[in-house]
């Protein structure tokens, strides 16, 4: 009975892994195919079914930058995502600590309402925000610029940081703050010297969320830029012309997910250990 259960579990995991990995394999093999290998029916085994070629990759990285510019948008995306995530994380963490530890009141509006206000920014459909963002960026001459995108992305990412960090700080025993104050810290020092050094797990989770959402955003990158500033998702989609170049598309898609996979591997070990709950009890 027990073995049967194990068998079912492993089978389920296997099927699910195949389901997840299959698109990557498909993209990987396609990126090494020529136009012929893709269009003349399904082919699977390299060297037998089709002749592998580095054409697509050369197109992206060949001498002189290749025929398709993917590295420019890659750098743009990295700059926008990282700076917006960092700023969101800093502001969001400060806001979250305040919301978790202090009581705010303005008439009937209290802490819970403020927290909901942050989260509600993500509940709103992005389309609703697109036009105001477009008009406002236009007003300040920030359309089609990296700086403009960073501002918009901060607005999009900070609610996530606040959301994750409020939850995290609420789980940090309050006695830790009280002890720090009795040991001689003022509220700012308490946050800076005691709470923050113990908040790595929360910061990592919030940071990953910010980076993933920022990196993958297509809608705002598409609506708020024209030609000068292009982010990676937009650049990849714009490869699509009358004849879809599946090989270059696959290669650039792989490039675009590579950083996220790398990040996931690097930070995975932070997620399960170093819980701050060890502070009390």
């Amino acid at each position: 009975m027990r073995n049967l259960l194990r068998l079912i579990k492993f089978a389920a995991i296997l099927i699910w892994s195949a389901f997840v990995v299959a698109p990557f394999l498909w993209a990987l093999t396609t990126s090494f195919k020529t136009a012929n290998g893709v269009t003349s029916g399904a082919t699977y085994i390299p060297f037998v079914d089709y002749q592998p070629s580095l054409g697509a990759w050369k197109g992206l990285f060949g001498s002189g930058g290749g025929s398709i510019d993917i590295m420019g948008p890659f750098v743009n995306s990295a700059v926008v995502t990282l700076s917006a995530s960092l700023i969101s994380l800093i502001l969001g963490t400060l806001a979250a600590y305040g919301l978790s530890r202090f009581t705010y009141k303005a008439g009937p509006v209290g802490n819970a309402d403020l927290t909901f206000f942050f989260i509600s920014q993500r509940i709103m459909p992005p389309v609703v925000l697109a036009i105001p963002f477009f008009l406002m960026l236009g007003l300040f001459g920030l359309l089609d610029t990296i700086f403009g995108l960073v501002i918009v992305y901060i607005a999009l990412l900070m609610p996530i940081a606040v959301w994750v960090m409020v939850d995290f700080f609420n789980q940090v025993p309050r006695e830790l703050d009280e002890t720090a104050m009795i040991d001689g810290c003022n509220p700012v020092e308490t946050f800076w010297r005691v709470i923050l050094p113990n908040s790595k797990p929360g910061l990592v989770v919030a940071g990953i969320f910010c980076v993933v959402f920022g990196w993958n955003d297509f809608f705002f990158a598409f609506t708020l830029t024209f030609t000068k500033t292009q982010l990676l998702p937009v650049a990849i989609v714009s490869l699509n012309s009358s004849v879809t170049p599946w090989w270059s598309l696959s290669a650039s898609a792989l490039i675009s997910v590579a950083p996220l996979i790398l990040v996931a591997f690097l930070v995975e070990r932070y997620l399960d250990k170093g819980n701050i709950a060890g502070g009390g009890k």
Binding site: P173, L176, T179, I182, V194, G274, I276, G279, K281
Partner: peptide, 13 residues
């Protein structure tokens, strides 16, 4: 003053 709480509080980091 010094205060010791019911549950031991240490700075985990």
């Amino acid at each position: 003053i010094a205060q010791v709480f019911q549950f031991p509080v240490v700075y985990p980091a």
